[in-house]
Amino acid sequence: MRQHGLPSIGARNTAMMEAITDLPPIVVSDLFGIHPNTACAWAQYAQNSWAEYLEAVQATDDGAI
């Protein structure tokens, strides 16, 4: 990317923000090879809370037969 004059850190950060808004932090940590706590920090930075998702999954699991 540097050979073409593109800032690599900006591209990485953009990719991280896009991923963290669509995927749970644990998936992003595996995808990018970062520590899960770092992925959680990025999720907080992106103002992305998975609490609603986890509540919905738990509600579905509680009602399952």
Rank of each mutant, 00 (worst) to 15 (best):
S8M: 11
L6Y: 13
A46Y: 09
N48D: 01
A51E: 12
C40K: 15
A51N: 02
V28E: 02
D62W: 03
S29Q: 03
G33L: 08
G5I: 09
L23M: 07
E55T: 12
T21N: 13
C40P: 00
R2M: 12
I9G: 00
D62T: 05
Q44H: 15
H4E: 10
H4P: 00
D62Y: 04
I34E: 04
C40Y: 15
D22F: 01
G10C: 07
A15I: 03
F32V: 08
A46P: 02
A15C: 06
E18P: 00
T60D: 15
D62A: 08
P7N: 14
V27P: 01
I34W: 04
Q3E: 06
E18I: 09
A43F: 07
I26F: 05
S8G: 03
V57R: 11
S49K: 09
Y53C: 06
G10L: 14
E55G: 04
M16N: 08
G33Y: 09
A46V: 05
A46C: 03
A11G: 10
D30I: 00
P7K: 11
A43P: 05
E52M: 05
P36D: 04
A15R: 04
G63K: 14
A41D: 11
E52P: 05
V27K: 08
A41W: 02
A11N: 12
E55R: 15
T14Y: 10
I20H: 01
W50I: 07
V28P: 01
A41E: 10
T38A: 14
Q44A: 09
Y45Q: 14
A11F: 13
V28Y: 01
R12L: 14
E18A: 10
P25F: 00
P36W: 12
S29A: 15
I34C: 05
R12G: 00
S29I: 00
T21Y: 03
S49N: 14
N37P: 00
H4L: 12
G33P: 07
D62N: 02
T14L: 13
N48F: 00
P24I: 03
T14G: 04
D62R: 09
L23S: 02
L6M: 15
G5E: 05
